[in-house]
Nucleic acid binder design. Structure first.
Lengths: 203, 203
DNA sequence: GTAAGGTTTAACCCTGTGGTTAAATATAGC
DNA sequence: GCTATATTTAACCACAGGGTTAAACCTTAC
């Protein structure tokens, strides 16, 4: 059936919007139905319950986020180039999905077990493994200080993700200083790699 | 009245716990009452509605968080020492209130207008003003590269706050690597000032 | 055309939850 | 001790919101 797929997608996209904005507890099935331009009963016809619909949305978004996160690092460039590419690509990705970090962090903190499965997936384990091995090489060949790799990984991600996770707050501050959020993160694409490289390169 | 104050505090503390864990939408008045060991009607006697109770909790917690954040910077030490003190104090504070970042960021993203008032308060404006002036001095006397102060402020905060905001997720990863979250953030107290100083000090 | 099955709707149902009420109990002032 | 006031409770209420049902409406196949 042609229509089937289409309707399901419309519903799913509406659900993504509403869940991203309100979270599972704040979202209303009625609002999802309205935004999809359909009847509430039709929601339950395609996705049996709110929980199931949410799971579908969550799995999709978590997958998108984490695959992007690690795949940005998945190349054979030297550390410095890798960082430049990472921040370029990753911040562009976040600009296109500005609500994703806040949504995922909130829901993961409230239901940590939900994400465990996704995160243990082969593909993501492998990408993380890769990243760590590449860091080891860079340490050995002297491009990188011998620092804690996990700490560095969190540092790198914190710097790109945090502004989006804290966007609501940051925009309040920015308003008082006449700064535009998009300009701000745009700058970070080139500023962050320099920042991190200065911080960790062997001297 | 003696008892009055006591009961109100018990209720408030219970509300803090429940709201921190579940957010305003996920929290149930019944659960707050249970955790305070009182009747649901008594909640409404002291705090007229869920909204009002939440506002009280939110204002308190936001105040605590932001005052701490900027007061950690409020001293006349040179930049390097200031950073060391900041991460020491600020991460200790976060260890004592591990749910605060996630709670505040979530709720601020959902209702940005709520926080605007608090954040525009004299005291906090002043502390921020101070911080920026001190950075200017450090740039002039050559301790700091001439970088964007707002970018640097966000960088510094991102590095301490992000691990707590993303705790649920990070702990999943850490479990696979046998890393303890508390050890990890404990390390950051000393590692982060070095990281940031390397990144931005004039060479 | 019509039978079968997939899709959509309007009208309901029922539980959970924020909030109220009226009465009971404690506390303080005289 | 008695009255007034503050505190606490059990029993309710109203309604929002997730989920169901039965019937109507398409689409496709023969």
């Amino acid at each position: 059936m042609e229509k089937e797929k289409q309707t399901e997608e419309i519903i799913f996209d509406a659900a993504v919007q509403v869940f991203e904005e309100k979270g599972i507890d704040g979202a209303r099935m009625q609002e999802i139905a309205d935004r999809a331009g359909i009847n509430k009963a039709l929601l339950h016809y395609y996705f049996r319950s709110k929980e199931k619909l949410f799971d579908a949305v969550f799995d999709k978004l978590a997958g998108v986020m984490f695959k992007k996160l690690f795949s940005c690092f998945d190349n054979e460039l030297p550390f410095e180039e890798k960082l430049k590419l990472f921040y370029q690509e990753h911040i562009s990705f976040l600009q296109a999905h500005p609500r994703l970090p806040s949504f995922l962090l909130t829901e993961i903190n409230k239901h940590p077990q939900r994400v465990a499965a996704i995160f243990g997936s082969e593909r993501i384990m492998e990408l993380r493994q890769n990243l760590f091995e590449q860091m080891d090489e860079d340490i050995e060949n002297g491009a990188l200080q011998d620092i804690d790799k996990m700490q560095l990984m969190i540092d790198i991600i914190a710097l790109s993700v945090f502004p989006f996770a804290a966007r609501g707050l940051i925009e309040i501050i920015f308003k008082q200083h006449d700064i535009d959020f998009n300009d701000f993160v745009e700058q970070r694409k080139t500023a962050l790699p320099i920042f991190v490289i200065n911080a960790v390169k062997e001297k």
